[in-house]
Design a protein around this nucleic acid. Structure first.
Lengths: 234, 234
DNA sequence: CAAGTTAATCGTACGTTGTACGAGTCATCT
DNA sequence: AGATGACTCGTACAACGTACGATTAACTTG
């Protein structure tokens, strides 16, 4: 009734394969879900969450605004797809038996964090639309790796969610600082102005500390230490 | 130029103190920042993020839409204020010397989590507008408590951000499940349908596990164990 | 080849939203 | 009395998402 194109991904017609004549590639490619999503990510990177308007997206694609709606149901779906596109993971072989499991986990989580920080808008999207296929894939990877590492089934969910939450939180916090320099400056100013109210974080310069990555890794190490029994020696 | 009312909070005029006559309290109270924020929170609880429209908010207040703009600069500010309002903390005495510091920390963080889950829309707001006064207060509290607990200044920021991130992530993840039953059902369905692709999380029923609170506490314990030197015995 | 079917594009238009602008009301101060 | 400032609100507008239907191009079926 409502959805014209829902589940499937590829359905592109091959009509521009230059049948008899016309080797010129026509600067205007045909619309496609892939192109829409890629352009949406570009636009989000360039203009932020509020900068994504259907008309503007269509402009960038050299198409009319309403043409988009044959490929996506609505704007929300564009957000969904853009978020998931940014979260794809090409990591080390998922089934590597000779496990440096800890390295695998850290790598995946660090990559996750890095990917999201490359696209700061993604953090703001996460709370609304978790559980795209790429997120699920990463959860699956995390799960199987930890399982292979010897985490008991009973503790598996705790371990997964703890790591997961940690990364999400780190990314969210960090990205919110990234968003606008004005905001950060304003916050600093407010903080400095009210340093009488917040003496301790003022003293430790909490908000000015720039070693986010170091803090991230240290905390992650502590978590992993706690979550996995110390019997890792293979 | 642009802002009519910015920094200060109270400025209410006392003109309805019933000077000579008129003891009836007039069902329509005067507008005030406090009332606006409180009503915004109500509205958000009832209708969600997208349900907050300026006109609707004004309706609930028995006022015209434009009247709101004397008290707030724009809609974004309403979001800011609503978020911060929800994050107020009335915890145990901040300067309790006889430190059950660990209990204090856990209590504050658990309260934080509980508060946000009571208002699921707050998680979606966090990435955009961190650092309201109530957030800063909690950071300050966390900071001073850990400092008193013996965490070295050099490790303080790592400790704070680790705990912080963990809580934010847990809340965000959890709230996204809370948001709509449809979404969750859809995710479950997709997961079950594609269980071939996600065998491990299917087996552990990761997404169906309901003991969020238990997982939260366990992971928090691990983090605290790692972050604070085991020399806590008073 | 003709006629129909399907895939895809897009112009127009509508309803909803945030909010700029300026007029209006009322209490207080000089 | 007049002026000032705090506060309210009706009107109007621009920007946005998108419903609707017309349009075109390619392929299918006869």
């Amino acid at each position: 009734m409502a959805a014209k194109r829902s589940g499937g991904q590829s359905k592109r017609s091959e009509r521009n394969v230059s049948p008899p004549s016309g080797p010129e590639p026509r600067s205007e490619q045909p619309l496609s879900l892939e192109r829409i999503v890629a352009t949406a990510v570009e636009l989000l990177d360039a203009e932020g969450l509020d900068g994504l308007k259907m008309r503007r997206l269509a402009d960038r694609l050299g198409a009319g605004a309403m043409s988009l709606y044959w490929h996506v149901g609505n704007k929300e779906e564009v957000f969904d797809l853009a978020l998931d596109a940014v979260l794809a993971y090409r990591g080390p072989a998922p089934l590597g038996e000779a496990g440096d499991w800890r390295g695998d986990v850290v790598h995946m989580l660090a990559d996750w964090r890095a990917g999201m920080l490359r696209h700061p808008w993604s953090a703001a999207l996460l709370p609304r639309r978790a559980l795209g296929p790429n997120i699920l894939f990463r959860l699956e990877l995390l799960s199987s790796t930890l399982s292979r590492a010897g985490v008991a089934d009973a503790d598996l969910n705790v371990a997964i969610w703890s790591l997961w939450n940690y990364v999400i939180g780190a990314t969210t916090t960090r990205a919110s600082f990234e968003l606008s320099d004005e905001d950060r400056a304003a916050a600093q100013q407010r903080l400095t102005g009210l340093s009488q109210h917040y003496p301790t974080i003022e003293r430790s310069r909490l908000l000015l500390d720039n070693d986010w990555e170091g803090a991230f890794n240290k905390g992650l190490d502590f978590l992993l230490d706690g979550l996995v029994p110390k019997q890792y020696n293979s």
